[in-house]
């Protein structure tokens, strides 16, 4: 038993599931099941127990080289230590925001940080245009620059309540309240089912929820 526990704790970035469960929306068994998923994700290319951007992209797009502005933003926000990799603890704490049990306020705040590309505390007009252009590049949609400008302008006009030409956190909250579908992708119903999807966690579990 001692050797078994020791080998798990020695793994890079591994954290005690009980501690992670106490800090997140997950139960201990859900954290353990997430570890089964994490091990698969982070052994796809580099196999060092850490999730690299190429492995993250491979899981999202079935391609390790596909550049995507939004995947980059998600990766960077998950990588709280900003050391270029996602450790297991970072993975669990960030994914917890996407849990159906997590608060809407946390989801709204995370989405704001995602879209605040320059991390200035505001979603600027040029950032919004950059994101719409990025979306068009990855999709089959073909909109003229005039149409994109018009969509961005209309959105800023509706969201920018104090008229300073950009969107702050309070304005973002108001905008999401009017358009709740904007944070739909911030909830992953799958997360409540994670122990069913990765049942092999029972081989290593230390508790039963």
């Amino acid at each position: 038993c001692f050797c078994f526990k020791s080998s798990r704790v020695d793994r890079l970035g591994y954290e005690d599931p009980k501690i992670l469960a106490s800090e997140t929306a997950f139960t201990v068994n859900e954290v353990e099941a997430l570890y089964e998923l994490f091990k698969k994700l982070c052994s796809s290319i580099i196999k060092d127990g850490l999730l690299h951007k190429e492995e993250f992209q491979l899981a999202l797009f079935q391609s390790s080289s596909k550049q995507n502005l939004f995947a980059d933003r998600v990766f960077d926000l998950f990588d709280v230590k900003r050391n270029g990799v996602i450790e297991f603890g970072e993975f669990v704490r960030s994914l917890s925001i996407f849990h159906p049990r997590s608060s809407e306020a946390d989801k709204i705040s995370f989405a704001f940080r995602l879209y605040d590309l320059g991390q200035t505390g505001y979603i600027e007009r040029y950032e919004l245009k950059q994101m719409v252009s990025a979306l068009l590049n990855e999709s089959d949609l073909d909109l003229s620059d005039d149409v994109v400008e018009s969509i961005v302008e209309k959105t800023i006009t509706e969201a920018d309540l104090n008229g300073d030409g950009r969107i702050d956190q309070e304005e973002w909250k108001e905008f999401v309240a009017k358009h709740p579908s904007l944070i739909k992708n911030m909830t992953l119903p799958y997360l409540t089912d994670i122990t069913v999807q990765f049942p092999s966690f029972v081989l290593n579990t230390e508790v039963q929820d």
Partner: peptide, 25 residues
């Protein structure tokens, strides 16, 4: 219709924001 959407509705369609794909391993 994309033209009728606001900018954030368009952006939220990105595959990079669909983390559900992480679980298809």
């Amino acid at each position: 219709q994309p033209v009728a959407m606001n900018a954030f509705e368009l952006i939220s369609m990105s595959k990079g924001l669909n983390l559900g794909n992480l679980f298809d391993v």
